[in-house]
Computed example of a mutant assay.
Amino acid sequence: MARDLYEVLGVDKTATDDEIKKAFRRKARKLHPDVNKAPDAEDQFKELNEAYDVLSDPNKRAQYDRFGTIPGAAQGSQPYVDLDDIFGGFGMGDLFSSFFGGNGGGRGQRARREGRDMGVGLRLTLEEVAAGVKKEIVYDRLAPCPECEGSGLAEGGKEVECPTCHGQGRVVTVQRTFLGDMQTATTCPECKGTGRTIDHPCPECEGQGRVPDRQRVTVEVPVGIRDGQQLRLGGFGEAGLRGAASGDLIVTCRIVPHEFFQRDGDNLHQQIKISIVQACLGAKIECEGIFEGEKVTVTIPEGCQNDQVVRTRGFGMPKFNGNGARGDMFTHVSVVVPKKLSKRERELLTKLAEEMGEEVTEQRTPFQKIKDAFN
């Protein structure tokens, strides 16, 4: 980011969000390697994309205006760490490649008009899943053109039958060979397989009715959602061609591992350590719950064994669509045997052993016995 980012986009520092978007699309169409064959076109497009990445984000833009750089950028920090995968890594550069390629369409096939579904992964903490949360996702997509409202038509424009393929969406060529005439059907290069063209296309989207854009959408994550469950946001996927239906955005929830708890369905598992006295006599241990400030009292039964599991009902995860119902908390107990004992502790345990009729091994050295005598 050695150059001024506003200069890279060709806008003033007072430019609005819409002006920044338009400037980016305008320059991207000139600099994208698919259309610009200059040796440095790829580097220029990358620089332009980086500038747009900063100036299209209100938080990043505010930091850049204040500091002249983005704090933490060198360490690769990202304000939006939720984004995991779009079309297997589909980014703005790929969106422009799709944009320049028109409507796609395989050989001899009519192009798809409806927008495709898009997928993103949303990372969540266990606390967020327990309480429910709203998350903002930022991603790139082909969005409805704001100038023509997705129609692809300029003022006074209309759709007409493609004069090249006569509405068929494909053209047939005949090649004469020594084996005879061979026919080949290919997607019409004029209408890109739609069978229709526009006499006066919108200059912003070049008649497609959609443009590469950066989308922000707030996702409301329901309480108790499971790892791998998906949320479908209708109409937030790829925009359709010239007003056709948009695809959906499919959000896959991924729950990051917790420091203390392990989730098993609606139940939570944790581990605690207790002393041999607590194991013998029983105890009440206060632990942190999954909610902020929540305290859970775990009742250790008398005679608790190492690796015993203690169940505390109603302190697990809230159930998905469970109207406030919760699972249980399972505490895995580890009995800790002290490695060192004071003289008094040793005496008490020795007496306990005698009372219980248990034999113990005297492992103290002569020097330790002399030391105890002086103490």
Rank of each mutant, 00 (worst) to 15 (best):
M1W: 13
L5H: 05
Y6G: 05
E7Q: 15
L9T: 00
T16H: 07
T16M: 07
T16A: 07
D17F: 04
E19V: 03
R26L: 10
K27Y: 01
K30P: 00
A38S: 10
P39M: 00
A41N: 06
D43C: 00
F45G: 01
F45T: 04
E47I: 01
N49G: 02
D53T: 11
D57M: 06
P58M: 08
A62N: 06
Y64F: 08
D65Q: 12
D65E: 15
G72R: 14
G76H: 13
S77N: 15
P79F: 14
F87I: 04
G88W: 10
G89L: 15
S97C: 01
S98L: 14
S98V: 12
N103Q: 06
G106A: 08
G106S: 04
R107L: 05
R107I: 09
R113D: 05
G115E: 10
M118D: 09
G121D: 10
R123L: 11
L126E: 13
E127Y: 08
E127F: 07
E128K: 06
V133E: 05
K134Q: 09
V138A: 14
Y139V: 08
Y139W: 13
A143W: 04
E147W: 07
E147G: 01
G150Q: 02
L153V: 03
E155R: 02
G156P: 00
G156S: 02
K158F: 03
T164F: 09
T164H: 13
C165D: 06
C165T: 09
V171I: 11
T173L: 03
T186Q: 08
C188R: 03
G193L: 04
T194I: 08
G195Y: 01
R196H: 11
T197Q: 08
E206I: 01
G209K: 02
Q215F: 03
Q215K: 12
R216T: 12
R216Y: 15
V217N: 08
V217W: 09
I225Q: 06
D227Y: 09
G228A: 04
G228P: 01
Q230P: 00
L231C: 10
R232I: 15
F236S: 03
G237T: 05
A245E: 14
H258L: 01
D266I: 15
D266T: 15
L268C: 05
Q271N: 09
V277Q: 15
A279C: 02
C280Y: 07
K284C: 02
K284F: 03
E286D: 09
E288S: 08
E288V: 06
F291M: 10
E292I: 07
G293H: 14
E294H: 06
I300C: 03
P301Y: 10
Q305N: 09
Q305E: 12
N306S: 14
G314W: 08
M317W: 13
K319Y: 11
G322K: 11
A325H: 13
H332L: 15
V335E: 05
V335G: 04
V335D: 04
K339R: 13
L341T: 03
E345S: 07
L349I: 15
L352T: 12
L352Y: 13
L352K: 14
E355G: 09
E359H: 08
T365W: 06
P366W: 09
P366F: 11
A373S: 14
F374R: 14
N375S: 12
N375D: 12
